[in-house]
C-alpha cells in the first residue's frame, strides 16, 4: 500500500470516529433525530456547545501531542522519550500551580503562557542532563527523564499541597475531555498550529535527530533548531495541560509505531504521526464514554493502560543490540 492509500484509509477512520464521537455520550442526541430533521434547539446546542468542541479538542490534542513526542525523540536522538516522560508536562503542571497561586484570576491564556515558560525550563534541564551523561545508553536517557519528571511532580505536589490546590493539580495531571465546552478548548488550536511548524521544518528536525556532529557538518544551525523544537514541544504540552490535562504515552507510542514501519524521515511521517495521534486519542475518549455508560472514564486513564501496554510491547520487540 502506498503512503497515500494509508493516509486516506486513516482519514476515513478518523471521520467515522468523528461522527461516532458526536453521538455518543450521556446527553440525549441520536443520529436519527438529526436525519429526520427533528433536531430541536436543545439538541443543537448540545451538539455545538459540547460534543463538537469535545471531538475537535480530542483530535487536536492527539495530533499535537503525537507530533510533540516525535520532535522530542528527534531532539534527544532517542526513541523512548516524550513530553510526559521527561518532565515537560510535569513542569507545565507546576507552572499552572504557581500561576494559580500567585494570580488566581488570570486568563487561561496567561496561565498557559506561564505554564509554557515552566515547561521550556523543565525540558531544557532534561536536555542539559542527557548531554552530561557519561554513558550514553539509549535506555538511560528515558530513565533520567522519568526521574526528572518524578522530581518536578513532587515539587508541584508540594506547592499544591501547601496551597490547597491538590484538586486542581489532579485535574491538570489527568487528561479528561468531559469538561470541554465551546470557548474553553480553543487554545489547543495554538498547539496544532505549532505542530504544523514541525511539518514545515521537518527536514531540519530529522537532521537534528542524526546528532549534533552530522547536523553541524551539513550546515544546520543545530542549537537554533533544538531551541525551536524545545519551544514547540513545551508550548504543546502547556496548552494541553491548561485546557484538558495531560495525556500520557500518545507522544511515545504513536511516533514509534509509525517510524517502525515508515522510518524517520520527518517530512514523510509527520502527517501520519498527527493522524494516528488524533485517531488514538479520539478513540480512547469514545471508548471511555462507552465502557461504563452513562458514566465516563477519563481518557488519561485509558491511555495509561493502553499506552504502557503498547510501550512494553515496543520494548520487547526491540533488539537488545541496538543502542
Amino acid at each position: 500500500m502506498s503512503d497515500r492509500h494509508i493516509l486516506s484509509l486513516g482519514c476515513l477512520g478518523l471521520v467515522l470516529l468523528f461522527v461516532a464521537s458526536l453521538f455518543i455520550g450521556a446527553g440525549d442526541l441520536s443520529f436519527r433525530t438529526i436525519a429526520n430533521g427533528e433536531m430541536d434547539g436543545e439538541a443543537l446546542r448540545l451538539l455545538l456547545v459540547s460534543r463538537l468542541p469535545r471531538t475537535v479538542a480530542a483530535m487536536l490534542a492527539g495530533a499535537s501531542l503525537a507530533v510533540a513526542g516525535l520532535l522530542m525523540q528527534m531532539l534527544s536522538s532517542n526513541r523512548f522519550v516524550e513530553p510526559s516522560t521527561i518532565g515537560t508536562t510535569e513542569a507545565a503542571g507546576l507552572g499552572m500551580v504557581v500561576v494559580t497561586l500567585l494570580a488566581p484570576g488570570a486568563l487561561i491564556f496567561v496561565k498557559a503562557l506561564v505554564a509554557a515558560g515552566f515547561a521550556i525550563a523543565g525540558t531544557a534541564v532534561f536536555l542539559i542532563l542527557i548531554r552530561r551523561l557519561r554513558l550514553k545508553s539509549g535506555l538511560l536517557v528515558p530513565l533520567v527523564g522519568l526521574v526528572l519528571a518524578g522530581i518536578i511532580q513532587a515539587a508541584a505536589h508540594f506547592v499544591a499541597y501547601r496551597a490547597d490546590l491538590l484538586q486542581s493539580l489532579g485535574a491538570w495531571s489527568s487528561g479528561d475531555f468531559s469538561m470541554v465546552l465551546q470557548g474553553r478548548y480553543e487554545l489547543l488550536w495554538i498547539g496544532a498550529m505549532l505542530g504544523s511548524v514541525a511539518l514545515i521544518a521537518a527536514d531540519r528536525f530529522t537532521l537534528a535527530g542524526l546528532g549534533r556532529d552530522v547536523s553541524v557538518n551539513l550546515g544546520l544551525a543545530y542549537e537554533r533548531v533544538v531551541a525551536l523544537g524545545l519551544v514547540i514541544v513545551s508550548a504543546i504540552a502547556a496548552v494541553t495541560v491548561a485546557t484538558i490535562g495531560s495525556i500520557p504515552f500518545v507522544g511515545l507510542v504513536v511516533p514509534n509505531l509509525v517510524t517502525m514501519t515508515m522510518g524517520d524521515n520527518g517530512r514523510r511521517i509527520v502527517p501520519f504521526v498527527a493522524l494516528w495521534g488524533a485517531i488514538l486519542v479520539l478513540g480512547c475518549d469514545v471508548l471511555g464514554r462507552l465502557l461504563r455508560y452513562p458514566y465516563e472514564i477519563p481518557v488519561s486513564v485509558i491511555m495509561g493502560v493502553a499506552g504502557s501496554a503498547l510501550f512494553l510491547m515496543l520494548l520487547a520487540r526491540r533488539r537488545t543490540a541496538h543502542g
Binding site: Q73, M74, S77, N78, R79, G138, D203, T206, L207, G209, L210, G211, D213, V214, L218, T259, M260, G263, D264, N265, G323
Partner: peptide, 17 residues
C-alpha cells in the same frame, strides 16, 4: 559516532548530504 535515530533509508540519508 553517528546518531541513534537512524531509521532512514540509505537514499534519504545521502539526500541529506
Amino acid at each position: 559516532e553517528n546518531g541513534l535515530l537512524a531509521r532512514l533509508t540509505v537514499r534519504d540519508l545521502i539526500g541529506f548530504g
